[in-house]
Computed example of a mutant assay.
Amino acid sequence: MEWIKDTFGTHKPIIAMCHFRALPGDPYFESEGGMERVVELARQDLNGLQDGGVDAVMFSNEFSLPYLTKVRPETVASMARIIGELKSDIKIPYGVNVLWDPIASIDLAVATGAKFIREIMTGVYASDFGLWNTNVGETIRHKTELGAKDLKMLFNIVPEASKYLADRDIVDIAKSTVFNNRPDALCVSGLTAGAETDSAVLSRVKKAVPETVVFCNTGCTVDTIERQLSIADGAVVGTTFKIDGKFDNLVDQKRVQAFMDKVKSVRA
Score class of each variant (00 low, 15 high):
2 E>T: 07
3 W>A: 00
7 T>F: 04
9 G>T: 05
10 T>P: 08
12 K>A: 12
15 I>N: 02
20 F>T: 01
26 D>N: 15
27 P>M: 07
31 S>C: 00
32 E>D: 12
32 E>H: 08
39 V>Q: 06
46 L>H: 14
52 G>D: 11
53 G>Y: 15
53 G>A: 11
62 E>R: 09
63 F>R: 03
64 S>D: 10
66 P>M: 05
66 P>N: 05
74 E>Y: 06
80 A>N: 14
81 R>Q: 12
82 I>S: 05
83 I>S: 02
86 L>P: 12
89 D>S: 11
90 I>H: 09
91 K>H: 13
99 L>P: 14
101 D>R: 02
103 I>K: 13
109 A>E: 02
120 I>Q: 12
122 T>S: 02
122 T>Y: 14
128 D>R: 12
130 G>A: 08
134 T>R: 09
134 T>G: 09
140 I>F: 15
141 R>Q: 07
143 K>S: 05
147 G>T: 01
151 L>F: 10
153 M>I: 14
154 L>W: 15
154 L>T: 00
156 N>M: 07
156 N>H: 10
159 P>L: 03
160 E>A: 03
168 R>K: 07
172 D>M: 04
175 K>V: 10
177 T>F: 08
178 V>M: 13
189 S>A: 05
200 A>S: 14
206 K>Y: 12
207 K>W: 02
210 P>L: 06
217 N>W: 03
219 G>Y: 12
221 T>Q: 03
222 V>A: 13
222 V>G: 05
228 Q>A: 08
232 A>N: 04
233 D>M: 02
237 V>A: 03
238 G>V: 03
243 I>E: 14
245 G>C: 09
246 K>Y: 08
248 D>I: 06
254 K>Q: 10
259 F>T: 01
262 K>C: 06
266 V>N: 04
